[in-house]
Design a protein around this nucleic acid. Sequence first.
DNA 1: ATGAAAGCGCTAACAT
DNA 2: ATGTTAGCGCTTTCAT
Lengths: 348, 348
Amino acid sequence: MAVTIKDVAKLANVAPSTVSRVIANSSRISERTKERVREAMEELGYHPNFNARSLVNQQTNTLGVIIPSSAKIAFQNPFFPEVIRGITSKAYLEKFGLYLSTGQTENEILEEVRQMVQSRRVDGILLLYSKVDDKVINYLIQQDFPFVLIGRPYEAEAMKVSYVNNDNLKAAKTVTEYLLLLGHEHIGFIGGNLDYVVTRDHKEGYQQALHKAGFESKQEYIVYYDEIQEGGQEAVIELMSLKTPPTALVVADDLMALGVLRMLDEMEISVPEEMSVVSFNNVMLSELSSPPLTTVDIHIYELGFQATDCLIKKIHDPKQPTKKVIVPHKFIKRQTCRKRVAQKEISS
Amino acid sequence: MAVTIKDVAKLANVAPSTVSRVIANSSRISERTKERVREAMEELGYHPNFNARSLVNQQTNTLGVIIPSSAKIAFQNPFFPEVIRGITSKAYLEKFGLYLSTGQTENEILEEVRQMVQSRRVDGILLLYSKVDDKVINYLIQQDFPFVLIGRPYEAEAMKVSYVNNDNLKAAKTVTEYLLLLGHEHIGFIGGNLDYVVTRDHKEGYQQALHKAGFESKQEYIVYYDEIQEGGQEAVIELMSLKTPPTALVVADDLMALGVLRMLDEMEISVPEEMSVVSFNNVMLSELSSPPLTTVDIHIYELGFQATDCLIKKIHDPKQPTKKVIVPHKFIKRQTCRKRVAQKEISS
DNA sequence: ATGAAAGCGCTAACAT
DNA sequence: ATGTTAGCGCTTTCAT
């Protein structure tokens, strides 16, 4: 078996508790013994047993990270790697470990979360998505277990939920207004899955901008897709089949926008000449597309970093008031938007 | 505090050991008491304490997942999410948890790995990358700790390392031969970081194909980049500045190929008319680019799944012989390659 | 078929 | 300043 505290104690000629105190660098141990004990630890290659510590301390220094159930789709989206990167940075600084959920369906995940909290496998939980009416959130609230949401809770009841989010409504409103200013009057909206709060916020912002400008937001210009791969493409077909097809598109995220560009390319509709496109997230590949995407940078890394910060604080002091952090976004203009050209000018 | 085995025992009027046996579904407990105990567990909402179990069993049912140090770059690449997805699936099936590395530099990661193994925080380790002369690998070998490599060890000494890999050399050879068959005589090679074994395998395959066809592989056609973002772009500039610029490109991976396409687009070099491009991985966005990428599907998900399978088997039976699994690849022809047109035909 | 007791490796209260 | 001891929650001999 591995070397334990007892072995070190024996070699250093002290009691196990002394060794323990040396590990904690207790001030009640003389420098001389500390020295001796440390040498013994070195010599034996001692490392404290993680489980033993966790057991007695009643804490694991580990954060549970919950990835949405549609992992197949979700994980393809650079959003998740990037949040995790943010989480990772902060967790490393605070010496916390990361424990990843592995469930694929909503129920599997719920069961997993239950395990995590009840078996004390983690000290807190990071939820990487916010769904409308989510069972996991409800469970966590009911258990009063420390957790932080990335996104925002949908239900009003969830006042006590800490979260880190962007102002997605405002972002959507801004890009729509921008398109409006460019003279576009028929603007399509390609949203993600309606179960996600972010989709609803985007839609709301889009509609507010339209209404404010005196336009009616017509149902047929609004389309939702969750399948990123085919999603963008089908959405384009649907919208371009309208009697009056849109001349600009607000797209749920960069990856889907890529699919949109691809489809547009196939249909020989040129971007931005004949169609303007704006999307959200500003993941790296939005710069690599042809043409590069005009998009909203939501600072994904920061979302993860802040959420982790917030969670760890909450773990250290459970009485912390609930916090709502809004990470600012930034509109990035690249090459997929252009002033609208009147129809005749094109067709002539 | 949470409910423990003792509480259950008390309620069911049995000894703690009996409860423990019920959890393990021991055959030595009568159905009647099992029933009673289970009811008590239900009533109290009992869940076994993970750390206590790990402590006595000397196993954690957790796998350590080590992400390469250049996480910033690495994680942007869809390769990693996709391997993790494969890992996740298998881990879930086997009821193993996943513990993620958080270190950013090579040394941080090495230290983390040390912690993981010495503190018994994980039962085995999955290395998601294979670097030439990697300290982590050497440490793991020396500790004789169960681990599986995704990729392959570079040093011959590492005979005892189990790994899951593609035949990257062959894949690179095949695509180069394909380009050769299309009449291309000047084929550029844009590889990833030379520290990674996969890069060396790609280069080797590329060169073998060239030599077999009677061509010399010239140094100036071979270029390495690790920065995905700018990498592809700079590489293109470098290669196109040659006196005889290549008419075809073998690119390290899809993401970088995207950057290449983007740059080519900017330089108004049309793909595939004036330049053929092949890459590796077949991540989802390779289908979304314009034009869609001709690439090699290396079955990333499968790599993760197989590696996890292999590791768990090894954990269950440490005497298992070392295994080398080669996941087959598949050449996916899409729209970035075309027969070479003689120079004059274009310029005329 | 079940209970009692020891022990996994560590920390912390209580001695001294 | 250091040692003794109990106990975290569980599993596993060893009894009965």
